[in-house]
Design a protein around this nucleic acid. Sequence first.
RNA 1: GUGAGCGUAGCUCAGCUGGUAGAGCGCCAGACUGUGGCUCUGGACGUCGCGGGUUCGAAUCCCGUCGCUCACCCCA
Length: 433
Amino acid sequence: MAEEARKKIEPVRSVKGTRDLLPPATGLWQRVEEESRRVFEAYNFREIRTPVLEETALFRRSVGADTDIVTKEMYTFEDRDHESLTLRPEATASVVRAYIEHGLFNDGGIHKLYYMGPMFRRERPQKGRFRQFYQIGAEVLGSDHPSVDVELLEMLALLVERLGLGNSTLLVNSVGCARCRPEYVKVLKRALEGVKSKLCADCQRRAVTNPLRVFDCKVEADQATIAGLPRILDYLDPECRQHFEFVTAGLRDRSIAYTIEPRLVRGLDYYTRTTFEMTSGALGAQNALMGGGRYDGLAEMLGGPPTPGFGVAIGEDRLVLAVEEAGALRAAVGLDAYIAWMGDGAYGPATKLARDLRREGLSVEIRRPTDAAKLKKSLGVASKLSARYSIIIGEDEVAKGRYQVKDMTSGQQEEVEPARLVAYLKVRMGTGG
RNA sequence: GUGAGCGUAGCUCAGCUGGUAGAGCGCCAGACUGUGGCUCUGGACGUCGCGGGUUCGAAUCCCGUCGCUCACCCCA
């Protein structure tokens, strides 16, 4: 009765667009995160952790009230006290909020912060795009100098190199500032009026609602027309132009390959001047590995003191995808030792050995009793777990005071006294890797 | 939000124009009662996503529904 009833229960599954990351895949994620931390810390970035939940207003004011993210992609709900809360769709706004909230501007100088964690956007999932996705980001607050931009781009180039992603392309552009961009948008709108009839339906719509977006069009037939549109780089004011030239010169100076992409227009309202994106060929339609730019007006938009900023958001899901594709990074695998024991008399010594090895930081597995006839089974388990060594402890070994240590790669076996075992294994672990 | 493709064993998939399911891998056991990876033999495992319809008969055809995937949109 109860059995039959149970069969009908639909198992609960993960929510659409969210996923479980299981071992061994998580090993690769850990490697990517480790490498990121190492590189960031080398550039003197320090970690900041902000809440996943924020007041909705934060994103409306920063990301932009009529961007796609805010109008249709946020997970927003009313809390019990009627406050509107949102699961963060990105983290730059949170970092700047924290910067203001804790008065970090009071100690002068610049702040270099990095973060990693889940973000949420309610989009239709596809390759490299999820409703809960992970970003690794870095932000520099407090300097409007273009050397900041160059340094961060240099850091990203190093990260990409460390991850074995040689085939990435860096695209850079400038979207001007609050003074010169509106001028350009006017010019662009006028130009679009003239050629509107030649463009696809989507572009005709964009020409009115968000002219900069026309540059994202992928319709082949539109490309010639789009190529003929005025470019923002030709409309930058002198300060913005100088800033951009400093950045590109800095990249050349460091031999960092880049392509100027006048069509690169970031989708968030807060960007000013430098914008960039790094793409990877291995990703499908969602090929942006990371993107970012300068946001000199953001702190003010959030009610803080004028504070220039520059940052990047890396799509970790995509980064991991690309790293898998490239195959250059291997996750740490396997087990250092498997303890195959048999016979009641071996139980005590075997568990004690396991404890000692584990206290030394070795990765050790020990399982239920196996009867002496099934040693082969234990070794089979050791093999399946990719153990580097198996330690065989039967009653013979206990009596003799020496355990059998089997190197699972070579098949070689040696007798080792329990007291020497930790040292024996540590020496071999150290050199073997 | 829109479009397309796909849902068959734990996994990857086969199953032609309808005759009530198969392979490989994995798993378990044995060959080999103290030595893994190889080989051989045997074994367990399926509401053919779900609901309805057509039919003597549906994994197969039709409708609906749910899910997944990819693409558009947009972005990381």
